[in-house]
Design a protein around this nucleic acid. Structure first.
Lengths: 238, 238
DNA sequence: CAGTGGTCTAGACCACTCC
DNA sequence: GAGTGGTCTAGACCACTGT
């Protein structure tokens, strides 16, 4: 981490999280911060913009930057969070079972979702996620082979996301998420502990790389009582 | 709209939407744009950052800004969208029925949600939203009276959001959204056309003002088959 | 009024991609 | 090597908040 504004951002996050900068007080002004960190005001402003976008402060014109009570945020804010990170953050021991791991010709549906040629092959991964002894989540991942040449059961039991970012150095850039509620399929009933529930929550994820190409489609199917999604929206100033 | 970067942003959005700037091609470079718009590069970059954050382009270092196929985005992207805007965008004629509009002492639950004193009063508004003849959404709004002194049935039938922003000049700054799935309550069964569905999707909304104070809590309860939520997440550079 | 954040400028150097 | 976006600087003026 060599970027000055990212370092300043991270230092301020730490100060807020530890409570050295108290909630509901004001951050030092941008002019003060620029002197403290010996940098330009625009660089400070980049750090503060990040803090604001991630829910740590609220900037008020003519007044200052109010520090927000960050301990209210009991759940990941937004962005791309993997099951493993998520479960660990909540203090649970996650268990992942791989039910299927195959390289195949994509179905028409997947071909359309991933905008593939006729000769593209895809990895299909089907996993269930267990928390507190119950199979809560059914994850179906489709990854384009030309981007991910190799995939093993070990990787899938750990975190595909980790493998892509750290091993393959594929940098995920943006994802479109869609949430809907549907009737359970036969597969859902078979692989999940549905426990009498009549619906499953489906999160469809379209994951893009840095060059804007689409390379992964994921369906995460949750038992409705164990599903929770939190999102922040803010009027953005730059 | 006097901000230069917002004007440039808006002009580029229009060019992309009308197809004058074609999807999967590159935007002119930042240096070219700075000359075209007779401005500085940082100002161009602010406009492009907005385009990127709103899903219109994908910036690639060393290459350029790729224009994304925007017609794929058939739903509002994120942020604070009112029911009225939403319904109109989808070409439906929305119908709103106000079931309750009272000024009352808040229940303990609401008092806690809105962090109120004992003497604060709140408006409670209960409305159903109808599309294509079916009552699909049950909206329960709680607004703190000290911010919203007056509220009428006409306002509630139109758009509370409009009234707050345009008439009262209350500027909404950020909102935290939480989505969960629950069993229908008696009230849900009574006021919605549940049509045999066993769950409702609850969107809880905590709305803050510019000065970071919390002034509105909303529960929007949807029939599961008519619920759809779309979200973009992106690695943000500034 | 002084102090704050919001916008804008005209440079500079770097890391990256493509040829 | 030429061109791209990413970062950074040291100023400037404005609109807004508080007193």
């Amino acid at each position: 981490m060599k970027n000055k504004y990212l370092m300043i951002y991270q230092q301020l996050v730490d100060l807020i999280k530890t409570g050295e900068l108290k909630a509901n007080t004001l951050l030092p002004s941008e002019h003060e911060l620029k002197d403290q960190y010996d940098t330009s005001r625009e660089t400070i402003r980049k750090a503060l913009t990040l803090l604001s976008q991630n829910g740590y402060i609220q900037k008020v014109k003519g007044k200052g930057s109010i520090i927000i009570d960050v301990n209210k945020f009991d759940f990941p804010v937004s962005g791309l969070v993997s099951f493993k990170e998520l479960a660990e953050k909540m203090g649970n021991t996650p268990k992942t079972v791989v039910h299927e791991l195959t390289l195949e010709k994509p179905s028409d549906f997947i071909k359309q979702q991933l905008k593939l040629n006729n000769k593209d092959q895809v990895w299909k991964v089907v996993r269930t996620r267990e928390m507190a002894g119950e199979k809560i989540i059914l994850d179906k991942d489709y990854l384009v082979k030309k981007y991910v040449p190799e995939l093993t059961e070990e990787i899938c039991e750990d975190s595909i996301y980790n493998y892509l970012e750290n091993e393959l150095d594929l940098s995920i850039s943006f994802a479109k998420k869609e949430i809907i509620v549907v009737e359970p399929t036969e597969e859902d009933r078979e692989l999940l502990d549905l426990d009498g529930f009549h619906n499953v929550v489906v999160i469809k994820n379209y994951v893009h790389l840095e060059d804007a190409s689409l390379f992964q489609y994921t369906e995460s199917r949750h038992r409705p009582d164990k599903f929770r999604f939190v999102d922040f929206a803010r009027r953005s100033h730059l």
